[in-house]
Design a protein around this nucleic acid. Structure first.
Lengths: 334, 334
DNA sequence: TTGAAAGCGCTAACAA
DNA sequence: TTGTTAGCGCTTTCAA
């Protein structure tokens, strides 16, 4: 059964296709009785305007593309969910693609996204650098880069948090609680946010007279748990660990549980980012909480401003938000 | 700067637009040197085929629409992530929409999806019933319904797990471990999977001589924790709780932590679905694990079979998979 | 306020 | 193997 076209509706309603178009787009006034006739005919036929045709003809395309490293990380999922909401309420659709944290996939997924000729692109790249096919978009399509970006050398608008300060805040807090031997459980130091959190914490702790060690656990939970585990088996234990991502924190907890090391009592723990499960524990986790909703909102506002202003040559803007310390029960006062 | 069209590429490469089209679609053979010239020209101009135009002309549409109740639940996110992978490797793009668990949003999001004239739709509805705009698709667009569906009265292909059996298995296991007073922490009994899990567990436990109680905690973590909390404060404690979803399990853990009730030692716990955080605990959770990847794979295979066979009038098929008990440390042998 | 007709960028049928 | 040309369904002039 073929889908009805605008012609079918026009014929049934006894009007021209232009009128049908105007009824649905609202771009030109139409008499009320004609409107009713058109709506009735459309209803009867189950007519839905074909987006491809309308986009092709009007050269307007109410679509925004979103690229994330990964759909299953709740942090990214929340960003997407927020973007989807805002987009929808502005009349835009969202097309999502995930790079699965692989540079080659990223490149091809971006190209697939761009074939939609989206009005704009919001991208969280998997590495700190701008993918080539995004760089090409300069002067063509509005782009907002989020999270895993170095603010300094970015050609596009960026939305990030002050990750260095995040590290500093965690470092200051742990030092104040008397911790002088701290382990930073990082995922991948190539990611700018991770690098900056690490530096912020490291420099702060050393400045305040403590010692800080850094361990890169990668992005696989099991693997990270093993790496940390054998480190714990062969080194004097720190009094506190700073877990820089959801996965590293899970690796830390796994390695600790395997060795019957208790959170807080034996080793204190601060996590970066806040997930529901972190509070639903007898020893709830103290965290550096990112303002996820604000990040998404800021990114959307930047993008829509670019799209609507058409001022393609404005200087790129970088918006920097802040994470906040949420004190719970996983840090012991020494 | 306007995007280059197929004409620009054709002109630069000194060939016809048809040849350019054939180079990229691969639907007709093209000489190697011409191919190279075309590819070079495309590269130089940054050409990307316009989806809207090609879809409009060819009436083929390599897009699959996916509807989920919610993007931030890892269960749904994993399904989407899997679907995206498979779709991409088959040359399809995926457009995703979330109903945010609201029927009105669901209806309007579906309509937005359908305006793309997708080749097929994979939908996890937010209630157990089929949304009207999906029902209309019968005989028009291939549809696969997943998870929150009653298999019996569904007009479309379905992919679900045997949720009744899930409940039975959990009930048998808890009974075998000596538990005779069990609380089922459900989210919303209107959702067919929840209803079936509940029934399976309830009937089993009662049959085996135990007692079973059911509490609906809704889908909000805090609220659920409060409901359960005041129930715990006013009732004799069960020896075990069966948490039917991620969120209810988090509610259970929250309410227990607030009251210093220990998992396993004081009350045993079985969760439905398996999330990374459930293992990364000193008392790791025993769970009924859903075969998420298989669910996604099955749904994709069903859909692609429908799309490619065009046998629109085949009987709807229901694929029923099974959850499996993964024993960890949260259930005490009485 | 309405209709007729052109054309968006692409692909398919046909001709060369 | 390549080119020419018509037309997908819609929106946008322009004329009535």
């Amino acid at each position: 059964m073929k889908k009805p076209s605008i012609k079918d509706v026009a014929k049934l309603a006894g009007v021209s296709t232009a009128t049908v178009s105007n009824v649905f787009s609202g771009r030109k006034a139409v008499n009320d009785d004609l409107k009713d006739r058109v709506r009735g005919a459309a209803q009867q036929l189950g007519y839905q305007a074909n987006r491809a045709a309308s986009q092709l003809r009007s050269q307007r395309n109410q679509v925004v593309a979103v690229l994330v490293p990964n759909l299953t990380d709740t942090f990214f999922a929340k960003i997407i969910s927020n973007l989807e909401n805002m987009a929808f309420s502005h009349g835009y659709d969202v097309i999502v693609a995930s790079s699965h944290d692989r540079l080659d996939v990223e490149e091809s997924r971006i190209n697939a996204l761009l074939r939609w000729q989206p009005a704009g692109l919001i991208a969280i790249p998997c590495s700190g650098s701008i993918p080539k096919s995004i760089a090409n978009l300069k002067d063509t399509t509005p782009v907002v880069m989020v999270d895993r970006v170095s603010v300094e050398d970015c050609l596009f608008d960026t939305v990030t948090i002050d990750n260095f300060k995040s590290g500093v805040d965690a470092g200051v807090f742990l030092s104040q609680q008397g911790h002088e031997k701290i382990l930073i459980a990082a995922s991948n130091l190539d990611h700018p946010p991770i690098k900056n959190r690490t530096q912020g914490c490291f420099e702060t702790v050393e400045q305040l007279g403590g010692r800080c060690e850094v361990l890169a656990l990668g992005s696989d939970l099991e693997e990270g748990a093993n790496v940390l585990g054998s480190w714990l088996d062969n080194n004097e234990h720190p009094t506190a660990i700073f877990g820089l991502t959801n996965v590293t924190t899970l690796s830390v907890l796994t390695a600790m549980a395997d060795r019957n090391i208790r959170v807080c009592d034996d080793i204190s723990l601060v996590a970066h980012d806040d997930y529901a499960w972190m509070s639903a524990r007898s020893t709830s986790l103290t965290v550096m909480q990112q303002p996820v909703d604000d990040i998404a909102k800021t990114a959307w506002n930047r993008l829509i401003a670019r799209i609507e202003s058409k001022e393609v040559n404005q200087e790129p803007q970088s918006s920097v938000l802040e994470a906040h310390l949420v004190k719970r029960k996983s840090v012991k006062k020494l």
